[in-house]
Nucleic acid binder design. Structure first.
Length: 555
RNA sequence: GUCCCCGUAGCUCAGUGGACAGAGCAGCGGUUUUCUAAACCGCGGGUCGCAGGUUCGAAUCCUGCCGGGGACGCCA
């Protein structure tokens, strides 16, 4: 549509109706097309004429008329035969909107296409597909995932799904720390429980520590006893055990990772050292006070950042820059980090380092998700792995269910802080809008089953068969799906998808009220309505699938 | 003190330059001999935190202020 408008504009210019854009002439604003909320305004609307009014110094209505005429001509001219008949009407409305209405024929072709290729309906191919790395969760394996990790898990997963649907190549990655003091503290805590001693300071207190203590295999204990770092040895075993548990929890959420990357491997494989050398070669590294620094201020940061401490130990930042080079070495065009908002302070230094190493800074993106404040009966639940006071992700799923939890996080922007009242969530899980959408799907599935029982089948083609008002309304709603996916991928947000799924369900429920599908006495009407609701079912199922939510056949 | 995010209906949140600001839940009233009532229909509900500014047009962009959260480490 955007393309058609742009062409129409160009034709007006070519025919001398308007001056050419560019140097000496008017600047060209981006051609924007939107979906009007009011059906009276057609299927597409553009404010192009109003944008052009100022540079052209002409009334927007006159410009709109000229473009609208070309648009209508173009859609019926032999040259545009491939798209002919898709546009029903083009209207101009004050103060200068151009409103375009799709023809029945366009809607009929869409329904046929959905039924012909259901699996790909809603996937699109963006013109500039990229290799995208999405790193998320990345919680250290010192305890089970808790509900504080839930939002990151869902946001990252949904983002990866949406980008994939838009045609990008996506790798999902989990990064964790396997060799620092935290892991040693975990090991020391396990040993303390075994010895019946109090948990050391900075140790871990959760029930799972006791479980780990009971499960340590004898050979690991023997190795630890013989080692000069028993806590470290036990910690290594414990963290691997915990990590496997995390993977199980995530699989239960429907969240799958392509790669689990350890901080230790970045050092062992030399990525960190090479990255530092690269920075040094560019003159961005210096030594001071026995420590090695990155000149982050050269890129606008408010202070320089330590890479190696004065005791020679690398900082977390050192691993970060090593990881950037490691990721780019795998051919990614775009790195996305899904981080908690508390990591805000580290964003600038990592992006600056990427720039210093010669990468495109814009290709390194951090998505900061706001905290979820967990509340039970009005009191905030403090969450700390060390204290052992937390609600695990598994507990949350037991209480509210995967589909409801996915919908909850998928329908909210990630920059907004959320209050999550556990009791309220449990109560509301029964009336979560997700069931409204799933119900629409189950209702259609039921109709399709009954139709088969009664020997009714859907029409092989909708061509010329769309029929009246209720059909066209539903078909319009179905046809919008690919744009929703495209918008979601571009915005890196999924609220549009949940909103769309709700709207489509509402539209279907209205159709169900007004239009009876199974009418054995009127096989033709039944056939075209069956085709239409079958396409609707596919669309709902694909929208839910995009969110990782199930589409039940019955409820 | 500096920086980032947020402030929209009673509640939880959408809407980030367009046409009368929306949804779900909560509240009130109605609908079933029919393909699933987890549905449908109707009603009430708003100084879009406040004040300026830019624009043909602002919840949306800019400035200031108020309120809430977060970050400012040779922690991770």
């Amino acid at each position: 549509m955007t393309l058609a408008l742009t062409e129409a504009w160009r034709r007006v210019v070519a025919s001398g109706g308007l001056p050419a854009p560019g140097p000496g002439g008017a600047e060209s604003p981006p051609v924007q097309v939107e979906r009007p909320a009011n059906p009276e305004h057609g299927d597409f609307a553009s404010s192009l004429a109003m944008k052009l009014a100022r540079p052209y110094r002409r009334p927007p209505l006159a410009i709109a008329e000229a473009i609208a005429n070309e648009l209508l001509k173009g859609s019926t001219s032999p040259a545009a035969a491939g798209r002919s008949g898709l546009i029903e009407s083009v209207e101009v409305a004050p103060p200068g909107f151009i409103n375009v209405r799709l023809s029945d024929s366009a809607l009929e072709q869409t329904i046929d296409r959905v039924l012909a290729e259901p699996a790909t309906w809603g996937t699109v191919q963006v013109p500039n597909p990229q290799h995208v790395n999405v790193e998320f969760v990345s919680a250290n394996p010192t305890g089970p995932l808790h509900i504080g990790n839930a939002r990151g898990a869902f946001v990252g997963d949904l983002l990866a799904r949406v980008l994939t649907a838009a045609g990008h190549q996506v790798t999902r990655e989990y990064y964790f720390n396997d060799f620092n003091a935290q892991v040693r503290n975990l090991g020391a805590s396990v040993l303390a429980v075994r010895a019946g001693e109090p948990i050391p300071q900075d140790g871990y207190h959760g029930d799972y520590v006791g479980d780990l203590a009971r499960e340590v295999p004898p050979e690991v204990l023997a190795e630890a006893a013989a080692s000069d770092d028993p806590g470290g040895r036990i910690g290594l075993w414990a963290s691997e055990r915990v990590r496997a548990g995390i993977e199980d929890s995530l699989e239960r959420l429907g969240v799958h990772f392509d790669l689990w990357k350890t901080e230790g491997s970045l050092h062992r494989e030399g990525w960190v050292a090479r990255a530092v050398e690269r920075l040094r070669a560019g003159g961005y590294v210096y030594e001071q006070g026995g420590a090695t620094w990155f000149r982050s201020t050269a890129f606008g940061d408010d202070k320089d950042r330590v890479i190696y401490r004065s005791n020679g130990e690398p900082t977390y930042f050192a691993s970060d820059i090593g990881y950037v080079t490691e990721k780019f070495s795998r051919g990614f065009d775009h790195l996305i980090y899904v981080w908690g908002a508390d990591h805000h302070g580290t964003v600038a230094r990592v992006r600056n380092a990427a720039e210093a190493m010669g990468y495109d800074k814009a290709a390194v993106e951090m998505i900061l998700i706001a905290w979820v404040r967990f509340v039970r009966e009005g009191r905030e639940i403090s969450m700390s792995k060390r204290s052992g006071e937390f609600i695990t992700l598994d507990d949350l799923l037991d209480e509210v269910g995967v589909d409801a939890a996915r919908w909850f996080f998928g329908s909210r922007g990630h920059t907004t802080g959320i209050d999550f009242d556990i009791e309220l969530a449990k109560k509301q899980s029964a009336e979560n809008p997700v069931y409204y959408v799933q119900y629409a799907h189950a209702r259609i599935a039921s109709i399709l089953r009954k139709g088969t029982e009664r020997g009714l089948t859907h029409a092989p083609s909708m061509a010329g068969a769309l029929g009246g008002e209720p059909e066209a309304v539903l078909a319009r709603a179905v046809a919008r799906f690919p744009e929703v996916v495209e918008d979601a991928a571009a915005a890196e947000e999924t609220q549009g998808v949940t909103a769309y799924a709700t709207e489509l369900a509402t539209t279907f429920h209205g159709f169900y009220r007004d239009a009876r599908v199974l009418e054995p006495d009127e096989p033709e009407r039944s056939a075209r309505r069956l085709a239409l609701v079958a396409a609707t079912r596919i669309t709902i199922a694909n929208a839910l699938g995009l969110l990782g939510i199930s589409a039940p056949e019955s409820m």
